[in-house]
Design a binder for these strands. Sequence first.
DNA 1: AATAGGCGTTGCACTGCTTGCAACGGGAGG
DNA 2: CCTCCCGTTGCAAGCAGTGCAACGCCTATT
Lengths: 259, 259
Amino acid sequence: MSQSLDRALTLVAELATGPKTLDELSRVVEVHKSTALRLLRTLESHRFVQREGVHHYRLGTAMFDLANRALEERDVRRSAERALRAFNARTGYTVHLASYEDGEVIYIDKYDSTHPMRMYSRIGRRAPLHCTAVAKVLLADLPDTELRRVVDGMEFPPLTANTITDAESYLAELERVRAAGYAVDNSEHEDFIHCVAAPIRGARGEVVAAVSTSVPKVLLDFDGLLALLPDLQATARAASVECGWTDAQPGRTPARGQD
Amino acid sequence: MSQSLDRALTLVAELATGPKTLDELSRVVEVHKSTALRLLRTLESHRFVQREGVHHYRLGTAMFDLANRALEERDVRRSAERALRAFNARTGYTVHLASYEDGEVIYIDKYDSTHPMRMYSRIGRRAPLHCTAVAKVLLADLPDTELRRVVDGMEFPPLTANTITDAESYLAELERVRAAGYAVDNSEHEDFIHCVAAPIRGARGEVVAAVSTSVPKVLLDFDGLLALLPDLQATARAASVECGWTDAQPGRTPARGQD
DNA sequence: AATAGGCGTTGCACTGCTTGCAACGGGAGG
DNA sequence: CCTCCCGTTGCAAGCAGTGCAACGCCTATT
């Protein structure tokens, strides 16, 4: 639609494969050197490309800045919607989406079992930290210093017979969650409800949200609840992909031994 | 220089702060809606932006693709050059840059203490894995499976009295390196030389190279060598930034408690 | 159910931005 | 000192990009 923009974007894509000279680039888009030069200059002024030496251009830092900022900005709720809705349609059970923010766990989406509609009014509601599966998943990913700070400020009011009522047990529970990759609420919040939750990860592997399903005990016993786990984790993985997650282990090069 | 491209790039930068509608975007660059629409369509055809719902645009996956590909393409040697040259000028000691590739550690750059010239002829030379600081730094970051494979194939010829001569001690040494964030070669390779090395990290926190400084024992005793560590680590950090590294801890959200 | 408003979309004519050309300049190599 | 190779600049012409106004779809309102 826009010729010059189209050419410029082609140049950027070309530069992603490695540094190139002006000549090489002008040949790629089949324009005169001077034309390519002007496009590159504009790209350069926005830090999309930068010069390398005098004869080469390469991608600039704006690409990394923008890509990272955009990843953080990506609306988890929207990204996860498709996967969560599908799980909800498949199983018929209630689905919650929650995220951690400043010491609190907040529900940011919900799909009800009977009416699969978004309850906008509930968005922003805080989840109890000590007795919900989503909170366990989210807190389990916090750095130790921040986790300690949060736990120090927590209270452990017993809500059911199963509620965890002290920090030490809670930290041990988070260890289990970390190792298992999922969390449960075994009727720790309400007597007649139990839940499982799994983490949704972003591009750097960090946990950006948690998805849970809540089932009345009259519909499913605890084993039946756990049987939902594979499907829930697949759902979480699908949502993770939408959030920019890729399989690569952050901080370590992917093992090449199993190719 | 190129008006339409300039506007398009401004739009992209704007979208990095979050999804926007056509109106908002056209107001940002002060053009008619239809003009913005055409720019966005071109950007969309290159997957630089994508629609979110019907009323919003957000950055597309090409940004992430390109940014990641470019990061891998970035020449570590070139990126690290400035920082390494500065360290070399400051201290006067020999500086090595090395990277890991397929079970081997390879010197990819060197700044000599007397003649700060690039020894192109030495590029590609392999470093012994069991007795060099750079190898320790690079192997310490490998995934366990690959590390085991590499160590299984290693030999431990004693070169000095200090050389590590068995796999078990070597793995223990790597644990120390991992914990400390740096490695030493305490005259394990040559009797009269000792070295310290630090990791250079890329955008995802992965170790892309190692920088070391080698000092004759007649010039500096072991404590004197360790005194170089802060400067060397600052150098490694500067080089890391050039390689796209940002402070964020991968896999964990950055602690906000200390702001 | 009908209406109004908001927003994205399209076709068209005009303007001015983009383009290619040719000449210039600086650095490298002989 | 000359030559070659690039990147760079000024200019004129043409066409691509732009703004306008009208259209259509969807949502909200009464």
